[in-house]
Amino acid sequence: MLVIKNLSKSFKLNNGQKKEILKNINCEIKKGEKVVIVGPSGSGKSTLIRCVNLLTTPSSGEIIFNNENINSGNIRKARQKIGMVFQQFNLFSNLTVLENITLAPVDSKLLSKSEAEKVAMDLLKKVGLESVKDLYPKNLSGGQQQRVAIVRSLAMNPDLMLFDEPTSALDPEMVKEVLNVMENLAQSGMTMIIVTHEMKFARKIGSRILFINEGKILEDATPDEFFENPKNERVKEFLSKIL
């Protein structure tokens, strides 16, 4: 479903030097896989996931999604099929919950307004939030906002969902409600790429774990292999610190 080929990303710093964030990343993700990306801060995890829907433009390399090269192809069409959930939720603050969810499918002419509202209500019911449909984001808790954000992406009926540290900005007691939603989504068969620091969660739902350090994939393994028997020294060091 998704092939990342020779992906590199570098920024020019203010002093004129180039900083390489991603160095020649190659990886393939199949339909239904749940790929969890872990690694130390600043390793390039978020940049990698943001390159998948071109919120960050790669310096070189290709992103092939559903057999189409999206660097050169129609990015808007690809984004309709790639949902994204942000660390800071990023709900549209001037729209109600329902409007947040229905705006994109109606704008993309995927659904009529009434269809979109029906889809939105079904999805809200699934995450237990149908009662907040007319509230504005600022009146919701962080956990509620993030669940709405997930629903907003799902309303587009995506093939692939990207999660960029979805629980990092949450109060600890709200983490679980969001992870539960993600777990249910995983069980429904959705293809997912997740950047997270929640190791237990990663082990539980991941089909593969990618370990990234200094812009390179150091380990690409199943959760059991990764946590029980890591090959790379850097991964061992990382795990020994966080577990």
């Binding site: 829907n53 919120l55 309709q80 949902g83 705006l103 993309s108 954000a149």
Partner: peptide, 9 residues
């Protein structure tokens, strides 16, 4: 970014 990721025009 949310707008872009949702493919809004």
């Amino acid at each position: 970014e949310a707008g872009k990721s949702l493919s809004l025009s």
